[in-house]
Design a protein around this nucleic acid. Sequence first.
RNA 1: GCUCCUGUCGUCUAAUGGUUUAGGACACCUGACUUUCUAUCAGGAAAUGCGAGUUCGAUUCUCGUCGGGAGUGCCA
Length: 513
Amino acid sequence: MKDFRVRFAPSPTGALHIGGVRTALYNYLLAKKMNGTFVLRIEDTDQKRYVKGAEDYIIQALEWCGIMPSEGQGLGGDYGPYRQSERRELYQQSIQQLIDNGNAYYAFDTPEELDAMRKRLEEAGGSVRNYCIFTRMDMKNSLTLPADEVAKKLASGEPYTIRLKVPADQTVVVNDVIRGEVKFETNTLDDKVMMKGDGLPTYHLANIVDDHAMKISHVIRGEEWLPSTAHHVLLYRAFGWEDEMPQFAHLPLILKPNGKGKLSKRDGQKLGIPVFPLSWDSDKPEDAFTGFKEFGFEPKAVINFLAFLGWNPGTEQEIFSLDELAEAFSLEKVGVSGARFDFDKAKWYNQEYIKAMDNTALAEKVKPWLSEEALQKGDDYLAAVCGLLKERVEVLPDFKEQSSYFFGPVQAYDDKNVKKRWKPENLARFEELKNMLAELSTFDAATAEAEVARFMAKHELGNGQVFPVLRLALAGTMKGPGVFEVMEVMGKEKVIMHFEAAFDYFEKLTKVS
RNA sequence: GCUCCUGUCGUCUAAUGGUUUAGGACACCUGACUUUCUAUCAGGAAAUGCGAGUUCGAUUCUCGUCGGGAGUGCCA
C-alpha cells in the first residue's frame, strides 16, 4: 500500500484566496484522517506574476487556520527543495527525456505569430483554434523545420519553447474520485507549452514532475484543473509513470454570493465581505483586502464554514472541531456542483463559536478591538462585559460598538426614545431612585432589582415607565442586556455617574424641544 | 466557437427506483419568553429546471433541451 501523501501547491502571486484555503483544508483533513503526510510546495515558476511576501502570507494564513502542512517549504522534508524555482535542473532533465522519446518538440514561434495563428483560425470559423495536432505542422517547430536548422536555432540562442506532442486518435480517461470517469479525445487537446522561453517549466510539467518526485498519492485541487488533467495523464504516460499516477479529485468551485461566476477578490471589496483569511496590504487601495481575521472571525469558525462549502457529513451535525472534521471527512461526500459563498452562514458559525467560548478567553480575543481606556478596566471586568454581550455579537468588533458605555460615558443617546420616555415629573423621581441605589451596601442584580421594585411600588409605576428610562440612562440605547445585569457588572459608582449625566441630558433635551 | 464539469427550498445541502406530506442548517415570517435587543423554544412559508424514454413506479437511470460554471495563455 502506497503511503498517503497529499500536497497544497499554491502560487505566490498574492494573498491566498479563501478557495485555496478550502483546498488546503481538505488536503489537511484527509492527510490527518489517513495518517498521511501533507506537503506544502510553492509553485513559483511564473517570475512575472511573482509577488514578494506572498509566500509568507500563505504560511501565516495556514497557520492562523490551524491547518499547517507537516512537510514542505519552510518545514523541511526528504523531497526538497519545495520551491519550484529551485528545482530547475530536475525539470530540464525531465523535459529532455520527453524530447528524447519523441513526446515533446521545440517550437520557435513568436508570441506575435501565435496570436496571428489564433486570429486566422478564428476567422476561418472552424472548431480548431489552437496549437495542436491539426495545426502544428503549419508552425515553426522541430517537427516542421529541417534538423540542421533546428540545431542552428538552438545553438544561436534563439528563444524557443518546448511543447507536448499530444498523440492522435486516443481517448484519455481520467478517473476522478469525486466525479467518476471523465473522458477526453486527444484530437481536441492542444500541444501545451511545457517549457517556457525563460527556461522555466509551466505548471503542467513542473506539477507532474514534482508530484511524482514527491510521491504524491492523491491530487486534490480545484475544478479549474479538470480540463487540463488529460494533459497531465498524457504526461505521466510520456514519462512512463502511469502506474504510479496519483488519484485525482477535483473540488467544486466557490461561487459569488450573488450573480454569476466564481468568487473573486473584487467581490470582497464590492460587498464589504472578506474573501481572504488575513488582510493583505498594498500601496494600491484596489489591491488591499481585509481578511476574516481582521473582520473579527474565529479561525475555527472559518474552517467549519469552509468545510461545509461543498462537503457535508450526511448527518445533521453542523458544528465540527478540526478533529471531528478529520474524522468525518471523505472525498466521497464532497459535492460535484459549485457552492455559493454565503456570508450570513459564515457569521452564524462565528456567533456559535463566540457563544461557546469561555468569557475570559473571549475577553482576550476582543482586546485588539478595544480602546486603551477599556483595557485598563481589568481582565475580570472585561470578561464580565463579554459574558453579558456575547449572545448578541456576530463578529468580534461588534463588542466594541456594543460595549462602550461600560468603559466610559454614553457616547450617544437615542433622542427619539428619550423624548418619548422622559416626562416632566421624571427628574425628581429618578433622582430619588438614584439616591436609593446609592445607599445600597451590596450592589448586585438582585438587590438593585429589589430596590427598583420598591421604588416602582411606592410611586405606582409600571415597568414601561421605568425600565426604558434606566436602559437609556445606562446605555443610551434601547438595546442590550438586562438593566440589572448591566448595573451589577458596572458597579454602583459607574451606575450613579451614568444616571447623573443622563438625567441632566434628558432634561435639557426635553426642555428645548 | 470548441472541450470538460454541473442543475433538489433564496443559499449550503440530505435522501431514495416505491418506506417521502422530499429531511436538516442559514436567511426570512409568526408566536412564546423578556423591560429592550439578542439568545432560546414552538410554529410557518419555501425545492427535485423543462421534455421525452426505460420501468408497474423516477427527484433518483438514459437521451435531448434549457440554464449555470470552468478551461481554451511562453498564468497557475
